[in-house]
């Protein structure tokens, strides 16, 4: 199974598709120049969020999808990244982009350290440990001992940066490009890592840890480093989120965020890079869609009740899992193979 998804991810046609996708993304803000509209900045913001989520999901995917360690607590690393950026910008007056390397180092360190207890824990137990992380971090962020930096329950408000070099872009258009560049670099790096020796080692550990060990792979080292890299990715996503939203508060990093990453991962497609993008897009769209679907249902069917958007979200998830239990990427892969096999006959 793993072999199939990997060959699918690295197939040449997909590479061309990926380049096309990124080019199309890069062209998007230009649409605002052609068709100026008031809500265009909002669309740009949605685009930023999609990329932020895609990076976060990629981080989780490196750990869960490619290395087989489950995490229900990646919201914690997301929060860590967001707060490091926010505090540096707020207290240190650092330019927003200079915070990213610091975030990368801090989050890698945090993830690497967390990787050690995680070595001892498997499946359900690891789920609980990471779950703890998801619960703990918002509580710690609220704690009065560090409220001087974190702003406590109220959080921190940041300034949205303007486009540099006098580029004729609105802040949201510029941030879209900023996110796009970071996302491209991170996806490219992940692609290269997975394709090489370390990627194979990671996947070997996922598929059979004991056997991988007997092949001479230092499983502990790889697992802890993967945890670090995974946290680094998700932390950078958090940093971008702090910059684009221009606000951080503990409650936006609570358990539902970690769960959302997991949902994005599974819906997009486990062990698939394109799946991370799909997952990121899905997470943003589903928030908007379920509410508008709820409104639509109420007006069309003349209901007395509001159909709760969370119920619609749940039903959507169930349907998706029925149709594509291996995620959208996995489902498309199967469809692709089905079509090509039909043609071959």
């Amino acid at each position: 199974m793993a072999a199939i998804t990997n060959s699918w991810a690295t197939r040449r046609g997909i590479g061309a598709l990926a380049i096309l996708f990124w080019l199309a993304m890069a062209a998007l803000p230009l649409l605002g120049k052609i068709y100026p509209s008031e809500s265009f900045d909002y669309y740009m913001f949605m685009g930023q969020s999609m990329m932020v989520y895609a990076i976060a999901v990629l981080g989780l995917n490196l750990l869960t999808g490619f290395n087989g360690q489950i995490s229900l607590g990646h919201g914690a690393f997301f929060a860590l990244g967001a707060y490091v950026t926010a505090i540096l910008m707020n207290d240190g007056n650092w330019p927003y982009w200079t915070t990213l390397p610091v975030v990368a180092i801090v989050c890698f360190g945090a993830g690497f350290l967390f990787g050690f207890p995680a070595l001892k824990l498997e499946s359900h137990y690891l789920a609980l440990a990471t779950f703890t992380l998801a619960i703990a971090v918002p509580q710690i962020l609220k704690h009065k001992a560090i409220a001087g930096w974190t702003g406590g329950v109220a959080g921190l408000v940041l300034e949205k940066p303007d486009a540099p070099f006098g580029l004729p872009l609105s802040p949201d258009q510029w941030l879209f490009y900023f996110c796009l560049i970071v996302a491209m670099v991170l996806f490219w790096a992940a692609f290269n890592m997975l394709r090489g020796r370390s990627g194979r080692a990671m996947m070997a550990i996922r598929d059979h840890g004991m056997a991988a060990g007997t092949m001479g792979i230092d499983t502990s080292l790889y697992k802890t480093i993967t945890f670090g890299i995974s946290a680094l990715y998700t932390g950078l996503a958090g940093a971008l989120s702090a910059i684009t939203v221009a606000y951080v508060a503990p409650d936006s990093f609570a358990l539902p965020l970690s769960i959302a990453f997991l949902v994005g991962l599974v819906v997009g497609g486990i062990s698939s890079l394109s799946g991370c993008l799909i997952g990121g897009i899905f997470l943003v769209l589903v928030q908007n869609w379920s509410q508008s679907l709820s409104d639509w249902m109420k007006s069309t069917f003349d209901l007395r009740y509001d159909v709760p958007s969370w119920a619609i979200y749940g039903v959507l998830l169930l349907l998706l899992m029925y149709v594509m239990p291996t995620g959208v990427a996995g489902g498309c892969g199967r469809l692709y193979r089905f079509i090509t096999q039909r043609r071959a006959r």
Partner: peptide, 12 residues
């Protein structure tokens, strides 16, 4: 993991 997502769906 698909099942986990279904449980999350049921929960919501």
């Amino acid at each position: 993991l698909a099942l986990v997502v279904c449980f999350i769906a049921l929960l919501s």
